[in-house]
Design a protein around this nucleic acid. Structure first.
Lengths: 198, 198
DNA sequence: CCTACCGATCGGTAGG
DNA sequence: CCTACCGATCGGTAGG
């Protein structure tokens, strides 16, 4: 017999992770029960523990998976031979598009990371602070070059990261245009503000 | 004997509400237990039920209390004889300052309103949508007058409401200047963007 | 406001 | 992957 063409990348465990992200997004991490997750997977709650060690492991995987995506992208942007303004725009657009593409996981990571257990919680916060610092450094460079301005780069980063999450409460679906308009609205708002004629 | 000078406005119940807002902000609504709240109040968990009917009632009071503050302010701004741009700036500054002044309650309302039970949940969402609609109407008027511009006023509102929440992750405390700088950073960012020399 | 308590449900384990 | 369970904890009640 020949080997299977390819190991199905969506193993049982990754199926569970996907279902968990959806469930956590809908009900929140704490309100979601292993029995609800088991029901989605059409198995008994006890059977989940053949694939994972604990409920925490699910949240851990979701949060750090998302964090890795962001750090990887940041690294790539930092090493690009483009201006600070262009770097900033790239970062903003990445945040928006990953929130759309990996909606469930990013949503959960954004909201529920506080429920991580130590020492993971500390590591996550550390990574987040480091990310914000490097993000702010790009804005600072833009200010030094006279391309950008804000009274507080650190505060501006927090505001950008928060603003970009408006995608979460945006009514998604219907037209494909919608995603494009939403993205352009956010980018224009953050780069040029609302007092701006096109 | 003379009457008491004034009925102490911080009744036992409002003390419980205040402690609940602090607890919920720290741990989240679902992760907070009535026993933890009782401990803060230095009483037994069962005794809390002499002041409230259920845990839900606490969340309900917090969320609708905050919502009322916002609606009241919106009404006042709408009826002011000022330009759409000035109205917009007033709204933004109100969101920031109330998030600082009533930090615990607004934080909880922003994050945990999804745990409201029906029919309160539906009423809350309805109020929220109405608020966003009236907010967007101000931006639309600003566009009509050529004072503002955005591809999507509705989306812009979501982005503003989200951006303003960056105060939640801002390191508060130390200097009183900090609050002022944070506010100016957000206002400038939303009105004039980051590509702006002073 | 307390003591005493309860039914329900939770995350997780044993053992197959 | 299932059956059978368990200890812990939860929101809440009875009765004073």
């Amino acid at each position: 017999m020949s080997k299977a063409v390819a190991a199905k990348p969506s193993s049982r465990k990754s199926q569970i992770l996907e279902a968990a992200a959806l469930l956590f997004r809908q009900k929140g991490f704490q309100s979601s029960t292993m029995r609800q997750l088991a029901e989605q997977m059409k198995m008994e709650a006890a059977s989940l523990y053949n694939h994972i060690k604990a409920k925490d492991e699910l949240l851990h995987n979701i949060c750090f998976g998302v964090a890795d995506d962001f750090v990887q992208n940041l690294q790539q942007v930092e090493s690009s031979p483009i201006s600070p303004l262009e770097k900033l725009e790239k970062l903003i657009r990445f945040h928006i598009s990953i929130l759309i593409k990996k909606y469930e996981a990013v949503y959960v990571a954004n909201r529920d990371w506080k429920h991580l257990q130590e020492p993971a919680l500390g590591r996550f916060q550390q990574q987040r602070r480091e990310y914000e610092k490097r993000f702010a450094a790009i804005i600072e460079e833009g200010i030094a070059q006279g391309q950008l301005y804000t009274p507080s780069p650190q505060m501006a980063v927090l505001t950008i990261l928060s603003a970009v999450r408006s995608i979460e409460s945006w009514q998604r679906g219907k037209k494909t245009d919608d995603a494009h308009i939403a993205e352009e609205t956010i980018v224009l708002l953050l780069l040029k503000g609302l007092t701006n004629k096109p």
